[in-house]
Simulated assay, not measured.
Amino acid sequence: MGLSFEDMEVGSVIECGEHTFTREEIVEFAERFDPQPFHIDDAAAAASPFGGLIASGWHTCSVMMGLLVRNAFAGSTSMGSPGIDEIRWLQPVRVGDTIRMTNAILDKRVSQSKPDRGMVSTEWNGINQHGETVIIVRSKGLFGLRNPGARG
Rank of each mutant, 00 (worst) to 15 (best):
A44D: 11
S4C: 15
V93R: 05
P148E: 00
P37V: 15
G126M: 04
R138V: 05
P92W: 05
G2H: 15
V63M: 05
G52D: 10
I105Y: 13
I136M: 15
S76L: 12
R146E: 14
H130D: 14
V110Y: 07
K114C: 05
V63R: 02
F143T: 06
G118A: 03
P82I: 09
F33A: 07
I127H: 06
H19R: 15
L145Y: 15
G51Y: 14
S56F: 02
V69Q: 11
S62H: 08
C16N: 13
L106M: 12
W89R: 01
R88A: 10
D107S: 12
S76E: 02
G57H: 12
S113R: 00
S111M: 09
E6N: 06
K114Q: 12
G17K: 03
G51Q: 02
A44R: 11
H39I: 01
S62Q: 00
R117E: 00
S81N: 10
P82R: 02
G57N: 02
R109S: 09
R70W: 04
V27I: 07
W89N: 03
V120W: 06
P148W: 02
G51R: 03
G83V: 11
E132G: 12
A150T: 05
S81K: 02
I40G: 06
T22N: 13
W89C: 05
T20M: 08
V137Q: 01
Q112M: 15
F38D: 02
G96R: 15
I84N: 05
I136Y: 07
D42F: 14
S12G: 09
G83Y: 04
V120H: 02
P115A: 03
P115L: 00
R23I: 08
A45N: 05
S121C: 06
E86I: 04
A46H: 07
V13R: 07
V120I: 10
V27P: 06
N147I: 02
L142N: 04
N103T: 13
F38I: 08
S81H: 07
D34L: 00
D7R: 10
